[in-house]
Design a protein around this nucleic acid. Structure first.
Length: 275
DNA sequence: CGCGGAACTGATCTTAAGGT
DNA sequence: ACCTTAAGATCAGTTCCGCG
């Protein structure tokens, strides 16, 4: 067994992914794995030279995926997507194809909007958002146009916004800016910071790291806790718990009605023959 | 007060160089 | 030939500092 740096990283990654598999938190993202390995003390967040601290891990991850030790599907790439507008042989068949995606709104027209700072967080929360039939978006750091063109038009005054972002200087600035832009566009929102909060840092015994911000003449030293410092499992539970509290009706009942309606509609369409 | 430049947020991949 | 490390690329958008 060769104890190389990349070899150790591969082993640590493989173990970590096995844990994710057992915990049911797959897929995950490279960024989460990185922070979890940092938290576990396997790798350092400190930069040595010009190479970024996550690059060794990414190299290890790529080789694991290419060798087949890690399923490609276990890691989501938040930066890329496929736009697919293909049709079916007939409209009837198309409707049958997409019937699985048809949802009943458990929120009576007032679903909360989830907004995350990082793409990776939105990626791992997406399965939950789908189950609860709510919209989810990542700002991906500082952003302007996207808020005006996509998010604001889908929001209304008073709507619940559940925000998840880093607990640090830049994270606060990003949240404040996001909220300012959206509230100026649609009016006051029921804005709630779900994570990371000072309370969670306390409850989960998280240790803030000291970050600098070289935009500031004095070095801008400040304490910071990244969202990924809370384990993926914990973040998922935080959102799930809040959504359950906000739901006007237990989710299981709505999902039951939804499935029954789908079956009836599939039955009706099936009797129509070729249209 | 306006503006340019630098720094920051976010994510991942490729290529070159060095070592065995 | 293969493995590891180093360094670079790419993108949009916001915020802060300092200068004129």
């Amino acid at each position: 067994m060769i104890e190389t740096k990349i070899g150790r990283l591969r082993t640590a990654l493989k173990d970590l992914l096995t844990q994710h598999e057992l915990a049911g938190t797959l897929p995950t993202s490279a960024r989460f794995l990185f922070y979890e390995l940092v938290a576990a003390g396997v790798i350092s967040k400190e930069r040595h030279g010009a190479r970024r601290p996550d690059q060794d891990m990414n190299d290890a991850l790529i080789s694991l995926r290419e060798s087949g030790d890690v399923e490609w599907e276990w890691i989501v790439d938040e930066t890329r997507s496929l736009a697919d507008w293909r049709g079916a042989a007939s409209v009837r068949e198309w409707v049958l194809d997409v019937l699985e995606q048809a949802r009943v709104d458990p929120w009576l027209g007032d679903a909360p909007q989830v907004i995350t700072e990082s793409r990776s967080l939105a990626g791992v929360l997406r399965v939950l958002a789908r189950r609860y039939a709510i919209p989810i978006a990542a700002t991906n750091g500082q952003v302007g146009g996207f808020l005006h063109t996509v998010i604001a038009p889908a929001l209304h005054a008073g709507q619940h916004v559940l925000y998840l972002g880093d607990l640090d200087l830049a994270g606060d600035q990003i949240e404040a800016h996001t909220r300012r832009v959206l509230e100026r566009a649609v009016g006051e929102l029921a804005w709630e910071r779900l994570a990371v909060t000072q309370q969670q840092v306390h409850d989960h015994g998280l240790t803030p790291i000291v970050k600098g911000d070289r935009r500031y003449a004095d070095g801008g030293a400040h304490e910071a806790v990244e969202t990924e410092a809370l384990r993926q499992e914990v973040i998922v539970e935080i959102l799930r718990g809040r959504l359950d509290e906000l739901l006007p009706e237990p989710l299981a009942r709505v999902l039951g009605r939804e499935a029954a309606q789908r079956r009836r509609l599939a039955g009706l369409l099936g009797q129509q023959g070729e249209l």
